[in-house]
Amino acid sequence: MVIPVPLIISSVLSKIGIGDPASSAIEKVLWNIRLPRIILASLAGIGLSLAGLSFQSLFANPLATPDTLGVASGSSFGACLGILMGFSLRGIQLMALALGLVAVSITWVCGRQKGRGTTTIVLSGIIIGSLFNALVSLVKYVADTETQLPSITYWLMGSMSGKGYSTLTIGSPLIVLGIVLLFLMRWRLNILPLSDDEAKASGTDIKKLRIAVIVIATALTASCVSMCGQIGWVGLIVPHICRMALGNSHEKLVPSSISIGATFLVVVDTMSRTIATSEIPISVLTALLGAPFFIVLMKKNGGWTL
């Protein structure tokens, strides 16, 4: 359904007591379907972007993202397991969070090496990711083909549709908390890519900072995954767009990742439900749009440095 802009404006105005509301059908679509969907897309966009940004800086590696570190796969496995065991939405989220943390911990332990910017962390992440993807397949294999399998499959593709305020209450508190914390410590995040000794010599308890950031970034990823499934690419593209434009200081990267991340996913989600008669899975679109856009930017700016 297309709702013209003037109608939206008058409906918003009617909420604050100016003019009359639109027809009840339009009101319902606008406030109970579209608005929660936009909020969900914004929050997921911000969450995934900030998680990607944090992981890149944490491991001083431009390729470290929720996807490449196995966090997203771990969270997905947790959520699938939750669906399989018939958990509530809250239970599914907790499972996603727990398994996300397990995945990133294994990746960290296996891939940790002396020095900064090592590639082994991503290599290890890819291995752990595929391990958890295999476990997801296993869950699908044993899932009930009538009821559980379709919901797992649909959910894995990632979608913003059919999610009301009830879905929002599951993941958004953690996402908002994560955004606030990262925003407050945005300058301190600049310490992350330094070598251990330099980081310590800046008077920072680097161990605590790393653990805090890894927990926040994983919570952001898991919350997004538990609300709208696996949406790839956002955590890689958005931080890099910001890095190429503004440099590597988190004073600028955190606010810009928030605004670009939200805008990006709202735009992509709007396209996913409007360009064809039936909705296109959002992760298909993020890849189709993100890859070429990213390649162009990269060729132009050589934006791989961190």
Partner: peptide, 22 residues
């Protein structure tokens, strides 16, 4: 790390800036 030079120098203030401060 590929910071702008003035951002890099500013990191030296780390022990004098609060954890959640700018």
């Amino acid at each position: 790390p590929n910071y702008y030079t003035e951002e890099m120098v500013l990191l030296g203030r780390g022990s004098r800036i609060g954890f959640f401060s700018q």
